[in-house]
């Protein structure tokens, strides 16, 4: 018997209100602990696909199952509990720039606390320690008390990863995490994601523009074109030539 996949897309369609097709009959499974890279041109639906997994975008029809549970009916608290186990990394880091690194990292933990404790900042000593450890894992422990906007782009993205680690995520979604970074910090950030995938067994799904990076880090590459899966190969079978077909016009 095959183990149940972490994430499973079944006939997923997304049509925007204005009639634009966002996703078209998406069908594939993502097993536990996979490092999946999604490639495709801008507007191919990579971001939409990623955001359907934590319901930041709703789908029009079909079904998405996470750990064998259909997620489309989740509301309120159950939706927040779903999001708690799915970390998300963004192209623009999305830190609160005027807040300290510590506060940004701890904010990843708020869904484990009742509202009043979050608002008063009453985090347990364990969780404060956990924040330091999370920063340590991205090699930024010394920046704990710095303000987020004092950091470079690469450092901000590492803080964002530390924030995600506070959630104890089973899945990390990374939407163009390195699009605003230079080549050197790109490698640092991608290496950290790969390490979390290998050491913690976190399922990682990354949207990338760069085919070279995709080939370097992925266990498997999925290609999207106009909302459709046009490519899906394990890394062993990926070649320059067949991957390039993702970027060829329809």
């Amino acid at each position: 018997m095959e183990a149940t996949p972490m994430i499973s897309f079944k006939h997923v369609n997304k049509i925007y209100d204005n009639g634009t097709v966002g996703l078209k009959d998406i069908n594939f499974d993502i097993p536990h602990g996979e490092f999946l890279v999604v490639v495709g041109l801008s507007g191919a639906g990579k971001s939409t696909l990623l955001r359907t997994i934590n319901r930041m975008h709703e789908i029009t029809s079909g079904e998405i199952r996470i750990e064998d549970e259909a997620i489309s009916q989740y509301k309120g608290r159950s939706l927040r509990l779903l999001r708690r186990k799915i970390g998300m990394i963004f192209q623009n880091f999305n830190l609160v720039k005027r807040s300290s690194v510590a506060k940004n990292v701890l904010s990843g933990r708020v869904s484990y606390y009742p509202t009043w404790k979050s608002i008063l900042g009453l985090f347990s000593a364990d969780d404060r320690q956990k924040a330091v450890q999370s920063l340590h894992r991205v090699n930024l422990a010394e920046k704990l008390y710095a303000r987020a906007d004092e950091l470079s782009g690469g450092q901000q993205q590492r803080v964002a990863i530390a924030r995600t680690l506070m959630q104890d995520p089973k899945i990390i979604l990374a939407d163009e995490p390195i699009a605003s970074l230079d080549p050197l910090t790109t490698k640092t950030v991608m290496d950290i994601l790969k390490r979390l995938n290998r050491e913690d067994g976190i399922t990682v799904i990354v949207n990338l523009h760069s085919v070279a990076l995709a080939r370097e880090y992925a266990d498997r590459i999925v290609g999207l074109r106009a909302g459709e899966v046009v490519y899906d190969e394990p890394i062993a079978k990926v070649t320059e030539a067949n991957l390039n077909q993702v970027y060829q016009a329809g």
Partner: peptide, 20 residues
């Protein structure tokens, strides 16, 4: 952006306003 991040963390609206 920070609001989107806090939403993805699973924070409720009041906490999102407070933090982001």
């Amino acid at each position: 952006g920070p609001l989107e991040a806090m939403e993805s963390v699973g924070a409720n609206p009041l906490v999102i306003i407070w933090y982001a």
